[in-house]
Amino acid sequence: MAEYFPILIYFVAALGVALFSAIAPHLIAPRKPTKIKDMPYESGMDPKGDARQPLDVRFYLIAILFLIFDVELLYLYPWAVSIQGEDGLPRELRPLVLGVMLVLLITLAIAYLVARRKGVFDWRRR
């Protein structure tokens, strides 16, 4: 884990820089709030109601599909790293692993095709 220690130090330093540049102007800059400045900017119209309204269901569908594909990607990373070279997987295991990966990909392709036929990716109704 020793090689991750610099990242921790760097994280603290970057956080320091970000917080400094976010806070310092608050100490020196003027602050003159007016009623108009405190209004939401909606192209000069008076805002109606709350901004946080229900969203289109497609956004949720995309989020769910993202989860499926991203988890699948997680399985592919260790495979890609260890498939080749001398210090990778033992040679006799490689055909088996390839078969497993192909099953995974085919399952995924079927899921993708189902989603596509259902029109998840069509943002405009035909």
Binding site: I28, A29, P30, R31, P33, K37, D38, M39, P40
Partner: peptide, 12 residues
């Protein structure tokens, strides 16, 4: 200029 600009935190 950015550093000296007014810091607006809207009320809403």
């Amino acid at each position: 200029k950015i550093f000296l600009k007014e810091q607006v935190v809207p009320a809403h």
